[in-house]
């Protein structure tokens, strides 16, 4: 039985696609056959972050409309074995997805894959609701900033009332992933801390991804940041994947890194 995990946030630009790409790659690295689906019809970007934009021929909507088979639309990742990408359509609008169509595609993918990662569009409209409807688990991506936290709470409310699991009387297992975290600003009380956000949202913490130059670098190159294992962000995503698999891993990168005397003198970062 495949596990369906939605990556969602309500607010745009907080790191859903970066997270979907990193978590899907991380699960495949751990040996699980994984597919990551872009639900952002009309504004596809997962292909760019995964670095497969020039290999897109057919997309999610083509499969739903039976214009292509699932195997024709799935793109095999060139870096990580066992990882596939199902891109969103760029030319249609958000209404091109139908609930029955999405269900059929997910059922077919579940036969072959162990993990299905759904990269949700921003907002709380149809596209976002479609992405979360069939989910077993949800990763709620949040920035330590007021509008992002409020929107996350909103999407948590939708997970608890409008998902298939909720309608059947169950619950979607929720995980909080705090991204763009800046320990220096938290230390000077300019930024909400991990504890603050946990307190407000009351969702178990999956991980904290520090604000990192590696994320932009990774998207420039079209390689998920989890592959950059030198970077703090890459390591933090690796930890998050381990926790998702039920391992007990200590949280890192929450404290201000003390600069060495020489580094401070030279103004290094």
């Amino acid at each position: 039985m495949a596990k369906i995990i939605v990556v969602t946030s309500g607010k745009g630009g907080v790191g859903k696609t970066t997270t979907s790409a990193a978590i899907a790659t991380g699960l495949a690295m751990r040996g699980f056959k994984t597919v990551v689906i872009d639900f952002d019809v009309g504004l596809r970007n997962l292909d760019l972050i995964m670095g497969c934009e020039r290999r897109v021929v057919y997309d999610f909507v083509n499969v739903i409309k039976k214009e292509a088979t699932l195997n024709q639309a799935l793109i095999k990742d060139k870096r990580t074995p066992g990882l596939f990408i199902l891109p969103a359509s760029q030319t249609r609008d958000k209404d091109a997805l139908s609930m029955e169509g999405v269900q059929t595609v997910l059922e077919n993918l579940a036969k072959d894959f162990e993990y299905i990662i759904c990269d949700s569009p921003a907002g709380i409209e149809q596209g976002a609701q479609m992405a979360l409807y069939f989910a077993d688990e949800a990763i709620v991506v949040t920035n330590p900033e007021v509008s992002s936290v409020r929107d996350s709470d909103r999407i948590i409310g939708i997970l608890q009332s409008k998902s298939l699991k909720a309608e059947q009387g169950g619950t979607v297992k929720e995980h909080l992933l705090l991204t763009r975290y800046n320990p220096e600003r938290v230390a000077s009380a300019e930024m909400l801390s991990v504890a603050d956000v946990e307190d407000i949202l009351a969702v178990p913490l999956l991980g904290v991804i520090p604000e990192s130059e590696a994320v932009l670098k990774a998207s420039n190159q079209g390689a998920p940041v989890i592959l950059d294992q030198e970077s703090e962000a890459g390591q933090a995503y690796l930890d998050a994947v381990s926790r998702l698999l039920g391992e007990d891993v200590k949280h890192r990168f929450l404290e201000v890194q003390k600069k060495g005397f020489l580094k401070r003198l030279l103004g290094g970062k």
Binding site: E145, V149, L192
Partner: peptide
């Protein structure tokens, strides 16, 4: 400003 943010939220 962080505690203000928390309070408002």
């Amino acid at each position: 400003s962080a505690s203000l943010a928390k309070e408002r939220l």
